[in-house]
Amino acid sequence: MLGRPEAKAARIVTFPQPRLTDAELVHAVAQGDHVALAAVWNRYVGDVRGAIHSCLGADSATDDLVQDVFLGFYRNATRLSTPSALRSYLFGIAARACAFELRTRARRFRWLRFTKTGELPDGPVAESPLDSRDSLRALRRVLERVPELPRMAFVLRYAEDLSPQEVAIALGISDAKARRAITKGRERVLALGRGEPALMAYLRTRSEDE
């Protein structure tokens, strides 16, 4: 047992992270160990923020969604069937949290629109060249038009660099279904992306490069 300090910052003890594997951390969190939870946070908060950023872009809800991801992990740590796949599992929670956020916004903005088209301007994007920001905006428009499961599979596979097996674990589906979702997501994104001039540079085929 790793100890159960109060949830106060002053009492958070530095955790010997390198000595513990993901599975050991998950087991400790399942026992209610807050120090282990802090260690998981320190190990993966950057990845989780990155995954949420990949889904939503710079967004004011990111901090709250990160909280939701780790809180969801804490509450369900006892149910993880593959504790060693903690990273994939956290990515999966993040992807579902983003999908839920997007669905909620779509419903909300159906009634309440701040702009003529209903699209909101992007938040501040740190140090990106202007053409990259245009491309990113175009890619987000494309992703919004891709169904939820293929979209999550695409982001996890190509933005977060998860293997198909890890995508399956993250989304709680079979390997075969994950592969189909990745393929469908890729095909949809590329098909829709061909209608976006800002993405043309990214869609050039390898043969054209050569």
Binding site: G50, E127, Y158
Partner: peptide
Amino acid sequence: GSEEHAAEALGQLLRETGKP
């Protein structure tokens, strides 16, 4: 292969543009 290549490029765009 070229589709994989393009998808990876788009993934990199998502991942690296405007790091959070």
